[in-house]
Amino acid sequence: MSDPVTDTAKDVRTRRKRRRSGGLHIVVFLAPAVLIYSVFSIYPLVESLRLSLFDGLEDGTAVWAGLENYATLLFDPNWATQFWRAFWNNLVLFFIHMVVQNPLGLLLAALLSLAPRFGSAYRTLIFVPTLLSVVIVGFIWELILSPLWGVSETLLGTIGLAWLYQPWLGLESSALTTVSLISVWQYVGIPMMLIYAALLSIPDELIDAARVDGLNGWSIFWKVKLPLILPTLGIVAILTYIGNFTVSFDLIYSIQGALGAPNFATDVMGTLLFRTFFGQQLQVGDIHMGATIASMMFFIILVGVSIYLALVQRRLQRYEM
């Protein structure tokens, strides 16, 4: 930070400047962004919350329903089974990303931060799947895992594990795990990059000091580097949580369809929202129930973010580097 005295002097100057030009430029700078963002992001969110409190009538008008839609979603047998199943599947998805994707990203980042030869080549190539459209990733894996093509079986056969092969995407017991792992395969590049950047930003003097104190590479990582990158790990965790409720739709819709095949084993909040809003097969589309599901997702994300802010962020010290 610069000298507080000169700072105040500059503030005075800036303030004087603002008074002179009437502050119109501030409005000009801010208005377009605020306008587009308010109309196409904030207003729809608020409107969705409002719609969830109404019920549609046959003639197209809406009547006040209070929290009735929420009660239906949570307790009506037809809706509740779908809702809790989708919610549970989202939690499983989140859990698999937390125990597979983020540790894997941490491992890769830690290895890359040792600056091995070809490090930038590894980094570049591992990031490739992240760039691809989820639709494409979904189809690639659908083909590779397909019993029709038999590539997976052949590959497992080369290491003597052909007997392991099963049509994982088609089995109720393994479909959700398989979809999660495909998503991990695609997105591991993001935690890898974020953690890698955080590791790079640790000052060399700290590492040198630890080395002088007699710590070896392993304990330097656990005792010095890891505590320093905890804020980044926290950010990775909350990004994983938010992404899990929104991005998972694309992959599951591409591979398993809007019904979360097989037999709803991969049905998540996103597919449930899509199906409810637009209708599917025998079900008629329902704006108000759709808005209710979207609002529930909003509250679930809000709870997660609040927990993150209250628990994680407060405990993590911010290290000025």
């Binding site: 503030d11 800036t14 303030r15 603002r18 502050g23 501030i26 801010l30 962004a33 605020v34 963002y37 196409f40 992001s41 904030i42 207003y43 729809p44 969110l45 608020v46 409107e47 969705s48 719609l51 938010i242 409720f245 929104t246 739709f249 996103g270 929202l273 809003f277 704006i287 759709g290 808005a291 979207a294 609002s295 997702m297 909003f298 994300i301 809000l302 973010v305």
Partner: peptide
Amino acid sequence: EYRFRFNTLLGIYLILGIMVPIRLGTVAI
């Protein structure tokens, strides 16, 4: 750059969207 009323508040308002995915407003969009 500028100091004006509601600067902080407006800043928070504008970055709210990081935490709240726009897709949740799809019905209204």
